[in-house]
Amino acid sequence: MAEIGLRGSAVRDPEQREAQRRRILAAAAEVFARKGYEAATMEDIAAQMGVSKGVLYYQFRSKQELVVETRRATSGAAVDRLTEIVQRPGSARVRIEAALRDLAAAAFDPLAKHVILLPVLHGLDQRYLDEVRTIERRYERLLETLLREGVAEGSLVVDDVKLTAFTLIRACFGPAVWYRPDGGLDEFQIVDRLVAHLLRSITA
């Protein structure tokens, strides 16, 4: 059975449609990061892609649906990666380092940057806000689980697991705000030094 698009027409090439969907998400993420959710318009996103608004509305019903999908794509992928890290064999200390490296690298990912720069989405309907927060809480709980494992094995010293998890997340996201390509350090050096600093703050 042929796939049906939002406007009720058959999708002739699902692979092409999915590729276009990814391009829309990338363009939307860049516009949201630059202008903010409330100021950004579907016209801005279409202009970023060099297409008409109709291309966007073929895939997404509204700006709200589009911003939720960009966050689902980025935050959901981060949850999947952290789940894999948590489930690895070995010490919690080694796995928390892997988790922090993955998290810090996200600060340099163009698709993830709008999630970092727009932690609160004013203007979203409550059901959309709830969906976004559900994904984000899954990540927070996984990181808290890993921290508790480290405390239990004696490799980490954490007084307040929830506070520490939130602090680590925000610290790893910091470079998204202040990093400049013409600075003294490249992305990899920043990730190395930032992770090393954070590990020192929680290592027994």
Rank of each mutant, 00 (worst) to 15 (best):
A99P: 03
A99H: 08
D102P: 07
L103K: 07
L103V: 02
A106R: 12
A107F: 04
A107Q: 01
F108P: 11
F108G: 03
F108Y: 04
A112W: 08
A112K: 08
V115N: 04
L117I: 06
L121S: 00
H122T: 05
H122F: 14
L124V: 05
L124N: 00
L124W: 12
D125W: 03
D125S: 09
Q126L: 10
Q126D: 08
L129Q: 14
L129H: 01
R133D: 07
R133E: 03
T134Y: 13
I135H: 12
E136C: 00
R138W: 12
L143A: 04
L143R: 07
L143T: 12
R148M: 11
E149L: 13
G150V: 06
V151G: 02
V151M: 02
A152T: 11
A152S: 14
E153F: 13
G154A: 06
L156C: 05
L156D: 06
V157W: 15
V158A: 03
D159R: 00
D159E: 14
D160H: 14
V161C: 03
V161T: 04
K162W: 09
L163M: 13
A171E: 01
C172I: 12
F173P: 00
F173V: 00
G174P: 04
V177W: 14
V177S: 14
V177I: 10
V177N: 00
W178T: 09
R180C: 14
P181A: 03
G183N: 13
L185Y: 13
D186N: 09
E187P: 01
Q189F: 14
